[in-house]
Structure formats: C-alpha cells, structure tokens
Design a protein around this nucleic acid. Structure first.
Length: 510
RNA sequence: GAUUCGCUAGCUCAGCAGGUAGAGCAUCGCCCUUUUAAGGCGGGGGUCCUGGGUUCGAAUCCCAGGCGGAUCACCA
C-alpha cells in the first residue's frame, strides 16, 4: 500500500533518498521546480519519424519530458526521455554539457541527483548511434521538475514486456502512474476523445445543436434505473442525479429546436462490474419530423464513420471477434430474433403462456415482471449474447418502452430499436411518443409496476406531460453508450479500461 | 449482494510439510566516453493487507474484517 505523510520517518528508503537529492539540488542553487517556460520545438515521435529522410531539420532541437531509464557509462550516458508522443534516446557526454573545469552538472547533478521519473528539458542535435538508434546528442540539460517517488520500471526486449505495472488496483487508483509507464493506455484515451470528436463532428455537420441540460433533477426520468439521491440545502429539497436526459431534450424539441444532442454523464445507483460504472457517458440525440427507421440509417452511418476515423477501416478486432461496421447492418424484429434463437413464436402468447415458456427455456423470471420485461429477459438470455456483428433489433413490446411511440401497424409493439454488437447493447432508439394522453397512460402503467415491486419503474413527470400537451413534433430519439462504444473500438474488455478514474472503494491504510 | 482467486521490498514475483524472508529490475557505493532488458563488483531496503486464534514458534494453519480481480444476480 502507498505510504502517506510527509515526515521522513514514514518514507521508504527510496523516497528519503530522493528528498535528500532535492535538498542537495537546492544547495547547488538549482530550483527543482523552476517557474519559467521551456521552449520545446519538437516531439520525440516526430524526430524518429522524419530524421532519416531529412536530418538537417534536427540539428538544433529542444525537447522536454520524463527520464524513463538511464544507462551511465562513466563520462557518457544514455537516457530514455518520454514526452507525450513517445520516447527518444539521449546521449549525454560529460565534457559536452560541462565544457569547463567544473564537472558538477554531469558528475553530481546528472549522475547523483537526477532520477528516473524526473522531468527535464534538453537541447542538442540528432544523430544515429552505432547501434542504429536515432538519438539526441545533448548540449544543454535543465531540470524542470523533481520526482519524489520511484516509478515502476517496465522493460521491454523483442516485444516481450518485463515487470509490467499490471496490478489493476494500483493502475486504476494511480492512473497517472499507469499513463506514464504504460503508453498504450494513453492511446486508449486518445481514441476515446477522437471517437467523441468524430461523433460530434458528424452531428454538427448535420446542424444539430449541442446543448446542456440539468444533471441535478427534481424527478429522475427517461430510463428504468435506480437514481442517486442528494439534498439541496437552500431549497431544502431532494434532488436526483440524472439517469438519462431524455425528458429534458424532448422539452427542447417542444421548444422548437429540430435537432438537439448532448454528451451526458448519467448516474445509476446499481451494481458495478466490467460493463457498469455508477457514472457513465451517453450521447442522446433527438431529431424532429423523423422516425426510428430514419434513425437506424443515421446510427449505421455515424458508427461506420467513427470506425473509419479511428482505424481507417470498418473492421475492428474485439477479443476473439472481428467486427465489421460496414453498412448496412442486419435488421430483425424482436420476435423474429427470439424465434430464431429459441424456436418459439411469442407474438400471440398470453402473459401466463409466456411465463411458462420462459421457465421451459430456463430463463429466470419473477413475479414483479410484466409481459414486456419477460420478453426482454428471454431476449437478454437467449439472443443478445449471440449477436456479435452489429445488428438492429426492432419493434419491442409496449410494456417495456414507456417513452416510445406505438407501432404504426403492429399492435402491442412500439417503434423502437437497439443496436447490438459483440453481444451487448450499443444504443437504444425510438420514434418518440408524442401523444400526451398515451404518455400519461404509460406513466400510470409504470406506477402500477412500481406498486408490484419494480424498483426501476419510471416516475410520473407532470411538467414533461405539460410540455407534450403543448405539442411535440414527431421525433426520432437515440441514446448511445459512449463507454461501451469505446470499449469496442479500443478492444478493451472492461469499462475501467476506458474511464480515466473508474469508481473504487476508498483506499485505507493498514 | 453471492461464489471464487489474490494481497510478501518502489515494481513484478518466489517462499506455505509452521522454525522467524528471497530473486530480478529499481535504489545506494565503486568502475566504465556509442549503450539500449547495457555490463562488472559490493551494499542497503520489508508493520509478509489488518485484527484475533492455534502453537514453544505463524508470511505459512484457523476465524473475522479490509481492498482488488474474475464469474453470477440487477443494469447501459
């Protein structure tokens, strides 16, 4: 466990030595945390990429970064310097950085008082060593920040990694260390940002308006989930952290915007596992005068573009599976896919028959479940895990979709789809319910489910109903899980791998 | 929440017929002016997650707890 406290007595040997080095530096008149800028004019990866084709460009480079390893050979040394772009080797020669009689900078400062983990700035010229490594020959060296804790040392040879910093608990709790020593982790988060940028660019190119809606809500709505509850002192009222932003975005459609979207952190007070974090990110989009068929086309196009932007191809390797986002994706109705995987046509079954059938299939159900939830359960158990390539599942039972419009020709169903990919839901979308009378009835059915013991049933939102009563255009709505999509696009097996700081229990000493 | 595995030096790990702690890298000292998991020689560094119990004696066995991973349940 990490050691806290600032008293020397509580420090490890290596921490004490570094603090002593810090004091020695100060005695030599060197500020270990200098305030001035350092004039970086190039990045490590750029030198490595371009030096061979045009060496003349790199005769006067100035670069800053972290010391990741040192190989000291008497009066000359090699250092691996890491900046945001990658690593480059430095060659440091005593008589080069200490041209006069005083060799303190090399013999004492560099060799004794600097450590792996310290941030330095150097200037020099680039050359290639006898071993063929592109290297910066250092003319001047300056300490930019002293590191007081020893860094885990990860070594590599011939693509084999030695002593990897791999303890998941330490990696998540000290993500900053993870990012320093495991550069491929940094890349996952770069991809996450590029994914969001790609999606935003796509939506902006269609002139949809990016908006912000409340995270603290007096009523939670827009999804079936248990909320986090908090207290506003001045108003003396309970507020909930949003579980979705659907109802607020629809209010904006009522208000006259014809396309709105929001990247939103949502919060659900439920179990945690490798697919679930209490706070997670969704992108919700609402477009007026469109329907769910239209939205399927949009999702296909957008996700295909994202894959191309990230990987230059529609194909992505995810674990054992090669997933191809190339349009068009397969489309099945919920009943079709259940029939396909279970051999049962559930379209005309009564609730009792459905219960019986679920039990025959070994699908666990309980008394609080309505018909819709049982169908969803069968789908979740018997179909969803086996849908690997991106697939649209359409036309859900009305009971499990209280915010979706009734199907234009199939009674008992709604105009809803989910995209399933790698056995998991990627997005959820409907032709939005804009009939205020129907919406009120659906809320009331949800209240009834709540009375039967369903802790995730929706609550009735009078203000939202009032908005609908003013008239909402026919609208297509979409919610897409950004964490899940990032997991797929970066081949990450756990949501913790795509969140910088996944939720953890507090660490305790002893 | 349930089951299961894990927690030993800064990091990765070994040690578990119970006898009082080890390796590699890191670190410290010395040598070394093109090395790259640099190398050579020498030295330090540990509430063995915590608390109880069994025992002459516990990192090791037993019980309880903490934190984490995986799987399951709820869910995105």
């Amino acid at each position: 466990m990490p050691k806290f406290g600032t008293m020397t007595s509580g420090l490890s040997e290596q921490e004490t030595i570094r603090r002593n080095s810090l004091n020695e530096l100060i005695k030599l008149g060197i500020n270990p945390y200098p305030p001035h800028t350092f004039p970086v004019n190039v990045r490590a990866s750029e030198i490595k990429k371009n030096f061979s084709t045009d060496p003349s460009l790199y005769q006067d480079v100035s670069i800053a970064g972290r010391i990741m390893s040192r190989r000291i050979m008497g009066a000359a040394s090699f250092v691996e310097l890491q900046d945001e772009s990658g690593r480059i080797q430095l060659y440091i020669k005593r008589d080069e950085i200490c041209p006069g009689e005083d060799k303190t900078l090399y013999n004492v400062v560099f060799k004794k008082l600097l450590d792996i983990g310290d941030l330095i700035g150097i200037s020099g010229y680039v050359f290639i060593t006898q071993m063929g490594e592109i290297t910066i020959h250092v003319r001047a060296l300056e300490l930019l920040s002293k590191s007081l804790r020893p860094l885990p040392i990860v070594k590599e040879k011939d693509d084999a990694v030695f002593d990897a910093f791999s303890d998941p608990e330490l990696r998540y709790r000290q993500r900053y260390v993870d990012l320093i020593v495991n550069p491929e982790i940094r890349d996952v988060f770069v991809k996450r940002t590029r994914l969001i940028n790609s999606m935003r660019q796509y939506l902006n190119s269609r002139s949809y308006l990016e908006v912000e809606t409340p995270i603290l809500q007096p009523l939670y709505g827009g999804a079936a989930a248990r909320p986090f509850k908090t207290q506003h002192n001045a108003l003396d009222m309970t507020l909930y952290l949003r579980i979705a932003n659907e109802l607020y975005l629809k209010r904006l459609i009522v208000g006259g915007y014809e396309g709105v979207y929001e990247f939103s952190k949502d919060f659900r007070n439920e179990g945690m596992d490798r697919f679930h974090n209490p706070e997670f990110t969704q992108m919700e989009l609402y477009v007026a005068y469109k329907d769910y068929e239209w939205m399927m086309d949009l999702v296909e196009e957008m996700v295909e573009k994202i894959s191309l932007d990230l990987h230059g191809t529609t194909q992505v390797q995810v674990g054992e599976n090669l997933i191809d986002f190339r349009r068009p994706w397969k489309r099945f109705t919920m009943y079709e896919v259940i029939h396909h995987f279970t051999g049962t046509d559930i379209a005309d079954l009564t609730e009792e028959e459905l219960v019986q059938r679920a039990q025959q299939l070994g699908v666990p159900i309980d008394k609080t479940m309505g018909k819709g939830k049982i169908i969803d359960q069968i789908f979740g158990e018997k179909c969803e895990p086996f849908l690997i390539q991106p697939t649209f599942i359409t036309d859900y039972p009305v009971e499990m979709s209280p915010l979706a419009k009734k199907h234009r020709c199939k009674p008992g169903l709604v105009e809803r789809f989910e995209a399933i990919c790698n056995g998991k839901e990627l997005c959820n979308a409907f032709s939005e319910l804009n009939d205020p009378i129907d919406q009120r009835e659906r809320f009331e059915a949800q209240l009834e489910l709540g009375r039967r013991g369903d802790t995730e049933s929706m609550v009735l939102d009078e203000d939202f109903l009032r908005a609908l009563e003013f008239g909402m255009p026919p609208t297509a709505g979409l919610g897409i899980g950004i964490d899940r999509l990032t997991m797929i696009m970066t081949n990450s097996p756990s949501i913790q791998d795509v969140l910088f700081f996944p939720q953890m229990r507090p660490e305790k000493r002893g």
